[in-house]
Design a binder for these strands. Structure first.
Lengths: 219, 219
DNA sequence: CAAGCTAGAAATGTATACAATTTTGCCAGA
DNA sequence: TCTGGCAAAATTGTATACATTTCTAGCTTG
């Protein structure tokens, strides 16, 4: 499948933002990026606009587009919305989840433990995402799934600002996932919702404004 | 304030879709629209892409963009997500709402009753939107507010498919709004959440596939 | 007559040119 | 030195031209 130039550029830019290669607040200048990526302004422009619609950048007419620089307040608000939707997804999932899907979730949990022992943070996050996305999918509400996916993506960029060295203790996360999965297996909506609520809460309640040099760039 | 051509085109197209002037499933051809609107393809293209990101159209690479043609399932799913978020907003609003804001809501309710007597459906919907948006704003969570605003916009297009003649009894809606406002005034989170849940539920639970000629256009 | 192929048309994707707006930096004057 | 303004540079907004892909209509062939 031949992918369009714009999609490719979009992916590259998004990745660079999420990974922190592009500093928050940076202005995304069309002409500059066009030269760097050896394409015309047209696909660059499209990619930048898409980043805007996805919430990774802010646009001002006749001024240009900058990578977002969220406040701690905004970050917590976003996590809160994500929490609400994931709570709902977990509740719905108790009614529709199949034994195979439960097995898949448990498999992820095992992988998570192994990855934790290996200290492979990147892989750990990949598995974490997979768990949350699977539950969102199992919920059976595709609109809900799309919103959760969007918010999950959006919260990734926040983790860089909040915890650039990724030192957050991941151990509790594993146990929390297991709690959610147990509730799903027991088909207990209230327990599933509560478990997910607590899990999401622990991922943002302790956030504080990090002390970093102004021009800090995470690897 | 001078608005860009693209923004203007976006607004026009969105309005045409929401009002039903453009039939659901219609392909949005760049060249055709460019001729109609007397501009080049560039701003048309941007406007169409934006409609895509807002969920009013679907895009396929190298194929083009079509106005969405949601199934009843999708419509109900979207209303459900909106319901979840508005429930949350109502709950949060009980903690932050001011006497002035309560008064503003009550004012809307009075307007709503008058408008109902005048059978001005368009105005009625405008007031209804204002009530929901104000509660979302009062919640104090701007991310939540933006999502609710997006979903409110998106559900507008659904009402055309569901009820093109806008014959839905609006009377219960007024009473439901009053219930929500009473709960906000009493600063009772559970009551506010419940009242909003019931109000949202009544707006979509009874939806059925409408019987319409294939080429039906609302006004 | 149906299925498949092919050339032309049509539509989207990208590059480039030009217009309008904003930003920047320098200079004059108080 | 500070401020205001003006002109050049930089950047975004739009138009147009060209490239590539997809759609369509008509023809061929079994």
């Amino acid at each position: 499948m031949e992918q369009s130039s714009e999609s490719y550029i979009y992916q590259r830019l998004k990745n660079a933002i999420i990974k922190g290669y592009i500093k928050q607040g940076t202005k995304l200048v069309e002409t500059t990026l066009a030269k760097q990526m050896q394409v015309s302004r047209t696909p660059i422009r499209g990619a930048i606009r898409r980043l805007t619609y996805d919430g990774f950048a802010v646009y001002e007419a006749n001024k240009g587009t900058c990578v977002i620089k969220p406040t701690l307040q905004e970050i917590k608000e976003t996590f809160f919305v994500r929490q609400q939707l994931e709570k709902t997804a977990a509740r719905l999932a108790t009614e529709t989840i199949s034994p195979e899907q439960i097995q898949e979730l448990q498999h992820y949990c095992h992988e998570e433990i192994q990855t934790f022992e290996n200290r492979d943070i990147e892989e750990f996050h990949r598995i974490n995402d997979a768990i949350h996305l699977l539950i969102a999918q199992v919920s059976g509400n595709t609109v809900l799934r799309r919103y959760i996916e969007e918010l999950l993506n959006r919260t990734k960029i926040y983790l860089i600002l909040y915890d650039p060295f990724q030192t957050t203790p991941l151990n509790p996360s594993i146990k929390e996932h297991q709690k959610v999965i147990e509730a799903l297996q027991a088909k207990d909506p209230d327990a599933a919702e509560k478990a997910m609520e607590l899990h999401m809460l622990s991922s943002y309640e302790s956030m504080e404004i990090p002390v970093l040099p102004e021009d800090y760039i995470s690897l």
